[in-house]
């Protein structure tokens, strides 16, 4: 009796493991939910379809003809530690102010409508590395990695047309794109766009500077190194 039991047990265990597999095995089947109590509640969550609307979209599209007023969403709890007090809101705006459009009436304006501090430049550099460097390259020469994969006509910042371009027009290019570049207005908040503009200006200066632009104390170092 015992022998038969152990043989049957061993065979059924082998079968079971053969069917169920082991932990961590890769598979395409949706996970089994053993205790699904209240796991799926009939509420709308971010980027999750819902049965409530006919098109099953949880995130609603604005009704045609909606006029956006702009908004500032507060930073989520636990906001950036390093930037405490500086970036308290994620601002996407659609006013006609210079700070939101880069233009005064139908003229491009120039100047950064935020205090240009070391923090702003650092923020601009970080955002530039995330969103711009892929195409424009980390020095702004238009030699980012996307160019090697078939992205054509990436503008280098180091040409007179872009050196003399008003800040507002650069801001507008980030927001709405230009030629083959699509707009980044939906991804980069207004303040970050200005930070990037400031950083792009610094990049341009870095590749087009005279010795007289260098502060006197640093100039001595440069000349000593020559």
């Amino acid at each position: 009796m015992l022998r038969i039991f152990f043989i049957v047990l061993a065979l059924s265990l082998v079968t079971l493991v053969a069917i169920t597999g082991i932990r961590g095995q890769k598979g395409k089947k949706p996970p089994i939910e053993i205790f699904p109590d209240m796991d799926h509640q009939p509420k709308v969550k971010s980027q999750v379809p819902t049965g409530f609307f006919a098109d099953s979209r949880g995130d609603r599209q604005p009704v045609p003809g909606t006029v956006p007023l702009g908004y500032a969403a507060p930073l989520s709890k636990g906001g950036a530690v390093a930037d405490e007090g500086k970036y308290t809101a994620v601002r996407f705006a659609n006013s006609t102010d210079y700070a939101d459009t880069g233009r005064f009436g139908d003229q491009w304006g120039t100047g950064i409508p935020l205090p240009v501090t070391a923090e702003l430049m650092q923020r601009g550099g970080e955002r530039y590395a995330i969103f711009c460097a892929v195409c424009h390259g980390s020095s702004g020469a238009g030699n980012g990695v996307a160019g090697q994969y078939g992205m054509a006509a990436i503008a280098s910042y180091h040409q007179d047309r872009l050196r003399t371009m008003p800040d507002g027009e650069i801001f507008n290019t980030i927001t709405h794109g230009k030629n083959t570049m699509l707009g980044y207005g939906g991804k980069i908040p207004v303040d970050d766009r200005w930070a990037i503009v400031a950083y792009v200006r610094a990049l341009q200066l870095s590749q087009h500077a005279e010795l007289s632009d260098v502060p006197p104390e640093e100039r001595a170092k440069l000349e000593a190194a020559k």
Binding site: I22, G24, K29
Partner: peptide, 13 residues
């Protein structure tokens, strides 16, 4: 088996 270590890990749709 009755743990996400088995049910969830490795899900690769």
């Amino acid at each position: 088996y009755f743990t996400p270590k088995y049910t969830r890990v490795g899900y690769m749709p």
